[in-house]
């Protein structure tokens, strides 16, 4: 499958974040924080040691320690501050823009 450039870019980038803590916000407003275990080319995300950000709204999710989230329902991924390498991102986006 040929990925749109931006999806490929995110995929490459998220792979670098494996093992770091991220917060994934779903399109149904559920936000889950956990250690990024893996991500695939469709941006499906597996988290470990998860916790729900808004526990009052989703109390039953407290129990979940690992989960698989479909890429298509991810709205945002909040990155750890130390996981953002601005130079690498700049480079990657410029290369993408040039169509490389």
């Amino acid at each position: 499958m040929l990925l749109p450039g931006f999806a490929m870019l995110f995929f490459s980038y998220f792979k670098e974040l494996v093992g770091k803590e991220v917060t994934v916000e779903l399109k149904n407003d559920l936000a889950i924080t956990g250690i990024l275990h893996s991500v695939d080319q469709y941006l499906n995300i597996k988290l470990e040691n998860t916790r729900v950000v808004d526990e009052a709204k989703y109390p039953h999710m407290l129990s979940v320690k690992n989960c698989f989230i479909r890429g298509s329902v991810v709205r945002y991924v909040q990155l750890p501050p130390d996981g953002v390498d601005v130079d690498i991102l700049h480079d990657a986006t410029r290369r993408e823009a040039r169509g490389a």
């Binding site: 779903l26 149904n28 559920l30 998860t50 109390p59 039953h60 999710m61 407290l62 129990s63 979940v64 320690k65 690992n66 989960c67 698989f68 989230i69 479909r70 298509s72 329902v73």
Partner: peptide
């Protein structure tokens, strides 16, 4: 339609260990 799934082991959430999942019916 299966937008997320997880293992649930906390007895406070559900008395038995189970797979917890969320479903999107399309037209929400």
């Amino acid at each position: 339609s299966l937008t997320m799934h997880a293992i649930s082991r906390d007895e406070d959430a559900y008395p038995q260990p189970c797979i917890y999942s969320q479903i999107d019916g399309g037209e929400d």
